[in-house]
Simulated scan of single mutants.
Amino acid sequence: MKRRLNILCAIVLLVMGWSVGVSLYYMGLGMTKGVQMGMDAAREMMEEGNSVKLDEVSNMQAVSLFPKFLGEWERELFTDSIRNEKTGRYVPMAYSNLMVSVPVETPAWQKVASSVMGFLVLVANVWALVLFIRIVVSVNRSDIFNWRNVRRLRRLGILLIVGFVCVLLSEYMALCNLREAFALEAYDLALPDSVKVTNLLLGLISLIVAEVFAIGLKMKEEQDLTI
């Protein structure tokens, strides 16, 4: 039974490591491409004597879209078309994500708040990973049902929920600012994929498991007192 639990814990760690690794890879790739595009735009600006391309690069925004209800099923889901290279014909489609160059006014307090929340998300994720590893080590030592693990599970749940709330607030503020400067006829702007309800669900499950452990420990203590 312990071997099976160790395998499941190892799979969870691998999935978490893969998720973090993919996020870091795309973050690094985006930063690298952004720096490269900025350098190219700056070079062209110096050569041509204008700042249009530099402004276009600095104002790039990632936009998540959701088709509006337009009265007809086909128009609701397929508001655009794209060429199928296999057949040479245009097929209906709808966008879900875009990269656009739009100047967005962000107040200074929102920039500070977003930076603080980003730091909190990083700390919460690292701390949650450390707590999960400690729980796994405790399980391997056959020291499972104790108040230390109850506290760890509670902290793990709170950290996951805090991370979700910070990401949600940061992305919602960015979405509100973007809606002030950008709109499309056939689409609504939506929250990006970085806002994952999975973290909230895992946090709630962790709190529930912690309370189950706590109830079991209290019952055990009461039985020991009666004996």
Results as ranks from 00 to 15, higher is better:
residue 35 V to C: 01
residue 225 L to Q: 11
residue 54 L to N: 07
residue 19 S to C: 02
residue 117 M to W: 06
residue 152 R to G: 04
residue 35 V to W: 06
residue 67 P to W: 02
residue 124 A to K: 00
residue 190 A to I: 05
residue 173 M to V: 10
residue 127 W to L: 15
residue 41 A to Y: 01
residue 192 P to Q: 03
residue 224 D to N: 13
residue 84 N to D: 15
residue 9 C to P: 09
residue 126 V to T: 08
residue 206 S to Q: 04
residue 65 L to P: 10
residue 20 V to E: 00
residue 59 N to C: 11
residue 199 N to R: 06
residue 51 S to G: 14
residue 156 L to H: 04
residue 200 L to K: 00
residue 179 R to L: 05
residue 91 V to E: 10
residue 191 L to D: 02
residue 96 S to G: 09
residue 194 S to Y: 02
residue 216 G to F: 14
residue 120 L to M: 09
residue 34 G to M: 09
residue 194 S to G: 00
residue 131 L to C: 08
residue 114 S to D: 14
residue 110 Q to N: 08
residue 61 Q to T: 10
residue 76 E to I: 05
residue 44 E to G: 12
residue 93 M to T: 09
residue 86 K to W: 13
residue 57 V to W: 01
residue 14 L to E: 02
residue 186 A to E: 10
residue 21 G to L: 01
residue 109 W to A: 10
residue 172 Y to R: 12
residue 224 D to F: 10
residue 8 L to H: 05
residue 76 E to V: 06
residue 57 V to G: 10
residue 202 L to W: 02
residue 141 R to A: 15
residue 123 V to P: 01
residue 34 G to R: 07
residue 9 C to L: 11
residue 11 I to Q: 01
residue 131 L to K: 05
residue 134 R to E: 13
residue 97 N to C: 07
residue 82 I to G: 05
residue 9 C to I: 13
residue 11 I to G: 08
residue 74 E to W: 00
residue 212 V to H: 03
residue 199 N to G: 13
residue 51 S to T: 13
residue 81 S to C: 03
residue 128 A to P: 10
residue 66 F to L: 13
residue 194 S to L: 07
residue 164 F to I: 07
residue 121 V to G: 05
residue 164 F to T: 12
residue 108 A to D: 12
residue 55 D to H: 10
residue 172 Y to M: 13
residue 24 L to W: 09
residue 203 G to Y: 01
residue 75 R to T: 04
residue 74 E to N: 08
residue 108 A to M: 14
residue 98 L to M: 03
residue 105 E to F: 12
residue 136 V to W: 00
residue 15 V to T: 02
residue 17 G to Y: 03
residue 44 E to M: 15
residue 51 S to M: 14
residue 149 N to K: 04
residue 47 E to W: 10
residue 217 L to H: 06
residue 172 Y to I: 09
residue 19 S to W: 03
residue 159 L to P: 06
residue 181 A to V: 12
residue 186 A to Q: 08
residue 84 N to W: 00
residue 76 E to C: 05
residue 167 V to M: 15
residue 192 P to D: 01
residue 188 D to Q: 04
residue 188 D to T: 07
residue 28 G to E: 06
residue 154 R to A: 08
residue 26 Y to M: 07
residue 142 S to M: 06
residue 148 R to D: 13
residue 95 Y to L: 07
residue 153 L to G: 05
